[in-house]
Amino acid sequence: MFGKGLITGMRVTLKHFFGKKETFCYPEEKLPMPERFRGGHLVIDYKKCIACQLCSMACPNQAIELKVVTDAQRKRHLTSYIHHMGRCMFCDLCIENCAIHGLHWDQNYEISAYTRDAFDYEVLTDDDRQYLKEVMEAAAANPAPPIVPKKPAAPKPAEAPKPEPKKPEENKETEVKPNE
């Protein structure tokens, strides 16, 4: 009989009409995300970070922009960690490459924003900056001995007077540009 299949289909629909709802009322009800969920903003364990820049180098899309400073004890610290979320693919390679396992996601999936500038997210918090200030001051109070430049093994007959070896400049901010 033509139309029998239609009626069978309608019966299924009707059953679901009175059955259990499959959907959530999203903004009021939120689904919990699993532990491995990749998404949201990056969170860094600043006290553990050694500013090795491996995360920035592992990124396939140059989404991580770092600024690194060297303190008086010749230890590197981050002064700025900008996550360009517009470029980010959330591929997790930065987190997997972290040498100290100090990088993870905050698992927030509501990361939409009104402006494009809002996607350049600064990962470091005010607490991190305060910590950096303290560390820098502590290092300045107790500086490491300056590096003595090694003398060349065999003195060559110099035609022109050589420029003096540059002293390592302290507190110089170096910007790490993503390698193009």
């Binding site: 995300m33 699993p34 491995r36 969920f37 990749r38 998404g39 959330f90 591929c91 997790d92």
Partner: peptide
């Protein structure tokens, strides 16, 4: 998939040499 690799569309779960986790 979200449970096993943390993404729902672009999984990036199978890696060179095996799987991610």
């Amino acid at each position: 998939f979200n449970l096993v690799c943390g993404a729902r569309m672009t999984f990036h779960y199978i890696r060179v040499g095996g799987v991610n986790r």
